[in-house]
Structures are given as C-alpha cells and as structure tokens.
Write a protein that binds this DNA or RNA. Structure first.
Lengths: 230, 230
DNA sequence: GGCGAAATTATTGGCGCCAATTGTGTCGCA
DNA sequence: TGCGACACAATTGGCGCCAATAATTTCGCC
C-alpha cells in the first residue's frame, strides 16, 4: 500500500490483453478467418506466451475467435445464417433496451449523446472507416448504458462483437452511412420526446439497414418493456 | 489408422470438465459463495490441476463462478438487483423465442414435449428437488431448441445458468411448483394452437412466478405496433 | 519436370514446479 | 485472559520447458 504500483495479477492482465486483441479484431487489424499466431501476439502486445494463451482462451469462450486444436486460434468467421441470427437477437435485445433508456436518461446525457452524434457526422465526412466505427460504437454504448439493466447491456455488447466476424460489410454504401447518421438524430428526437416505442422502432431499422443482407429475416420482436425496476 | 483411438486434446477436456463443474453447481453440490478448491476438484473429477484451472477460467468468463485473485474461484453470488436483471433479460429473450417455436415445432416434437411434461408432473410428486430441476430444464431446453435461432438459444441457456447463483429459491412453495407444472401443459396447448402470442405470455408468467421476488417488475404485454412479415 | 514421401522447421499445447499470497495457529506480553 | 505479532501451513498463480502435431521444404524416383 505504499506509493509503489501494485503488481497486476494474471486475471487482470489477461482481461486487458483479451480486450486489446478484441479491439484489434474490431479495427480489422486481424481479418475474419485469419490465424492469430501466439508468437506474433507476444511481440505485438509485449506479453508473455502464457498471457497470450489465456487471453485467446477467453476470447474463444466469448466466441470472438475460434479454437482449432493443434492449429491454433483464428478470428471467428461468421456464416450468413449465424450472422442473421445475431442480427435478429440484437434487435430483440436492443429494442428491449429502449424503454429503459428513455426512462433513465437525463438532459445532460442527451447533450453528450448529441456531441457524439456530431462527432459521427464529422467522421462520416472526413474520418476513416474505423474511426466512424469506433465513434458509432461509443454513441450506442453510451446510449445503452442508460437502459438500467447491466446484464442486458453486457449481452448487447457481446453480440455486437460477435457480429464483427462476418464478411458482410456494414455501411456498404456511403448512402447507408448517411442514413445511419441521420438515424442517430432521429433517435435523440425520440429520446427527448421520451418515446420508447419510437426509439425501439428506430433501433430496429438502424440495425437492419446498417447491414444490408438480402431479405430481412427478422422476427417482429414484440415490445417487452422489461428492464429492472428503477 | 487401425483403432481410431484419438487422444483428447485440452480444449475438449476442459470444455467437458467445465460442463461437469457447471452441472455440479446447478445440482447445488456447490452452493453460491462456496469456494472451489482446485485440489478438491482435481480429485473429485480425476483431472490434472491444469485442466481444473482452465475449466475454472472458462466458467469465470461465463460468469458461472467468480475469480478473486490470490483467493481462488467461488460460485458466483448473484445479488438481488442482478437477479432481477437476469430475469428481465430472460423474459425478453424467451418471449422472443415463442414465435420461432410455434413456427418450427412439429407434432412429433410436441408429443415428446408432452412426455417430458409428464415426467415433470411425476417428479413433482415423487422426485427430489434436483430431479425436478433437471427435468424442468430438459423440458424448456427441448422446447427452445425449436426456436430456429441458435444464437438466441445459446444466450437463453447462458442466462439460465447465471441465475443459479442466486439465493432466491425457485419454487419456494409446493403451490408454485404445481403452478409451474400446470403451465407446462398450458404451453403445449398454445403450441398445438400455434399461438405464439399466448406462448410468449405464458413463458413470461412462468419465469416470473417461478421465482417470487417481491414486486414483479414486468409490464403486461402491449399490443405490437410492429409490422409482421407474413 | 512432376509427384510423393521423408526430413526439417514452425507452432501449438500439456504440465509441473516453485514463488507469492493468504489463512491459521501459537506464543509472548500486558 | 485478551490481543497482537510472528511463524507456519495451505492454496493459488506465473511461467517456462519440451513433447506432440501440423506446415513446409527437400530430396529421390519415375
């Protein structure tokens, strides 16, 4: 308890490293299907082999990557069917978060959200794809943080991460990117009006339209306004 | 290539062991908050220390158990708030599965489900608590297996496992147990009628009533204002 | 030159050892 | 007798080594 820094134990280091690797995958530093060689990761993240393996194990459990015995770990490739299932489940969960969000968010938070939306608008014009992606993530992460249900929130982010392994390009056209941008503002309008129904509907279309798979095989998640009691 | 005796690799053994431990936790062989000593687990499951640790790590990632640095692993204790969040999220997911189930299930499957329901009825009368629990699990697992969304299914089971760490007793009275039993048959009636709405409603009450936490934070199902694709 | 098999290299994976840390019992002192 | 500190025991945890497996290259044969 002196001023010296405490030595981090493995579980912490592993979690940190796992998140770093996960972020690298999000940023497409490793593409779906690509093998993650332990030796490379050791160097890149300045970690011991043991930590690398632990982190990879964790990501494998989280389904961010896939483990093939005696071959190693590779970024999970999500097939179309699974991708559609992920989207469908995301819609179920993220729609369900809407009511909680409108119930708990305050004006200050909406203002901050507005700032993030503005940053996204800027990134649409001048930023790189990964920049757009990260800001978009920040926007939604902040919004969902008000849903009042930590478990729900956690599942949403788990699913979003899993979807990254897909070959399907989000924002396949600039037009869709602009649409996403506009929808952010529509969401905030719904927030200001405290209109959970409308927010839920916007979220659904936001998810569907962002990733244009052929027919939208989405089940009409009925509004189950269930977040934990405040 | 003579005898196809393949040596199991770690990832497999670990997964098996993790599931065995998870089941032991479900069956209350280890109670919430209880420490899982690695040496004991080695003996009990005839595994190496390494495998035990891997399995524990996996369960910690799955949030079935909790890891405390330099103290070890213990069965996760779910506080009331988290428990309510888990229930709320379960309702969201399991309700959403209803439409898929009625769409995909066939008469043969319903017959099998009926058999499981009957076994549960029997267990209510003569079985132990853990027996009831496992048969109930089998009933729901089989039913949800028809939801047509593997990702959704997986999340449902992940959540159900997490809820086990709670101190709240499911079926706190015999009356509730009987009610659960009856509801199984009501669910099958809804299935036969291919009534997704009704099934969803039944699922919601089934989850709420099974675990009587104080105020039920569940709002009644509102009419869906969402367009449903044929 | 093409093809297959054997040798070589690269990479992963099982596992045990011992240091670090925490829990417990005991002893001395007030 | 009560309390604190020290020593001892129990347990966890970091990590590196080397065997097992897969990938690659080389070599010999047709």
């Amino acid at each position: 308890m002196t001023s010296e820094r405490k030595r981090k134990n493995t579980s912490t280091r592993r979690a940190v490293l796992a998140n770093e690797i996960a972020q690298a995958i999000r940023l497409r530093a490793f593409r779906p299907g690509e093998w993650l060689r332990q030796i490379d990761l050791e160097e890149r993240f300045q970690a011991t082999r043991f930590d690398v393996r632990s982190a990879l194990d964790e990501l494998a459990v989280r389904k961010t990557i896939e483990h093939v015995p005696n071959r190693g770990y590779r970024v999970a490739e999500v097939d179309r069917k699974t991708y559609e299932e992920i989207l469908a489940t995301r819609i179920i969960l993220e729609r369900a978060a809407a009511d909680g969000i409108v119930a708990h968010i305050d004006d200050d938070a909406i203002a901050r959200l507005e700032a993030l939306a503005a940053r996204f608008s800027q990134a649409v014009l001048t930023g790189s794809r990964t920049e757009q992606s990260e800001i978009n993530r920040a926007f939604h992460q902040f919004m969902y943080s008000f849903c009042g249900n930590a478990v729900l929130e956690e599942m949403i982010w788990g699913l979003r991460d899993r979807g990254r392994g897909s070959q399907i390009t989000v924002w396949s056209s600039h037009e869709l990117l602009l649409k996403s941008d506009r929808e952010h503002y529509e969401m905030m309008a719904a927030l200001k009006a405290r209109d959970g129904q409308r927010l839920a509907a916007l979220i659904a279309t936001h998810i569907i339209k962002g990733a244009p798979i052929g027919p939208t095989p989405i089940e009409p998640a009925r509004p189950a306004a269930v977040t934990s009691p405040g």
